[in-house]
Amino acid sequence: MERQPKQILICEDHQIVVDGLLSIFENQSDYQVKGFISDGNEVITEVKKQMPDVILLDLNLPNKNGIDLLTAIKKVHANVKVIILTMYNNQSIVKKAKQLGADGFLLKNCSSDDLLNALDNVFENRTFYIGKGVKQLVVENDGFVQKIKITRREKEIIRELIKGHNVPKIAETLFISAHTVETHKKNIFKKLDIHNSIDLVKLVNEKKLLS
């Protein structure tokens, strides 16, 4: 039984890129380009109308950016595969795209093989496809509680605070503005989740913050 070619919708505003993509899919029996859109505003209506199998989505579309479109696309067409095709190569963007439900991430200067690999991959495996050259995501443990870091300047301020000095006095001793000291103090209290200097003294003794 011959497989139906997967229908592709290209969302890309640069003709030269679209042309390039079209030439890749010309000889492909598995994939067929159903249409291309260059305006971010038209993407959702076209997706609804055409119900493609896969979307190649540029992040930098006029009027509406790809990140914003991702969620909306998945909303109107839950089964569609979306592969981001972009010039951007930032970990944070890759991570964000993944969070928002993208199925793959490719750079525009990817090779034809890479593109086809990505397509095959998103249909066969269900894992997030990362194209060649794309910055790998640093594995972050979500349950990891960030260790509180007290900076050098903050330690100075803490030393003064536990001596019982007030903000103006500290500002005078350290030759910095009262506003700076005040902000430092707020930062420290916020980080340590305390509300007064007594708590601070306790915490400094308990946790040896200054060592």
């Binding site: 640069h14 030269i16 890129v17 390039g20 030439s23 010039m87 525009k108 200067n109 090779s111």
Partner: peptide, 18 residues
Amino acid sequence: LHDNIGSQLSYLKRVVSD
């Protein structure tokens, strides 16, 4: 840089590599 030059470079790359 991003749109025009980037796009044309990626096109160029594909043509050249093919």
